[in-house]
């Protein structure tokens, strides 16, 4: 299994798809990297030579923010919103949707599993 950009070990799949297992690399960046390196996109990840892998690695190092660095960056952006106590930061703190979605129903991704409240439906109060 080739190691690209640190700990990632995609395998068996064409390198074009295997690269997407790296956090921060999607369809667009995977193709960009392969065009830049001149490697056949359909080649399986396990068939890559050591030289090709190091070429991919150097391209990612030079021009892409991936994995830990990217995760930290995202976290810092959120932390900034929290620190200046603006509306969006407040929503992050509360664990509610940030972009103005409804919360009367749905919003389960942010709010987590349903907490049933007795007597909520039907008669009010």
């Amino acid at each position: 299994m080739p190691r690209i950009a640190g700990v990632d070990v995609p395998d068996k799949k064409p390198i074009r798809y295997a690269l997407r297992y790296i956090y921060g690399i999607g369809p667009k960046f995977a193709d960009d990297i392969l065009t830049e390196s001149g490697i056949d996109a359909a080649k399986r990840a396990k068939d890559l030579t050591g030289e090709e892998i190091s070429r991919i690695n150097s391209i990612i190092d030079a021009g892409f923010i991936v994995e830990g660095t990217l995760r930290r960056q995202v976290q810092q952006n959120i932390q900034r919103l929290r620190d200046i106590r603006c509306y969006r930061g407040e929503r992050h703190r509360r664990g509610l949707p940030v972009r103005g979605q409804r919360t009367r129903t749905n919003a389960r991704t942010r709010k987590g599993k349903k907490k049933t409240v007795a007597g909520k439906k039907g008669v009010k109060g």
């Binding site: 200046i84 603006c86 969006r88 007795a118 109060g125």
Partner: peptide, 26 residues
């Protein structure tokens, strides 16, 4: 850090005070 945001983002218009307890009522 606040540059680029709007003034209104820092002045909340709603305050969530918790849900009503059924016994204590509204």
């Amino acid at each position: 850090d606040m540059v680029g945001h709007k003034l209104g983002e820092f002045s909340p218009t709603r305050f969530f005070r918790g849900h009503t307890n059924k016994k204590e009522g509204i």
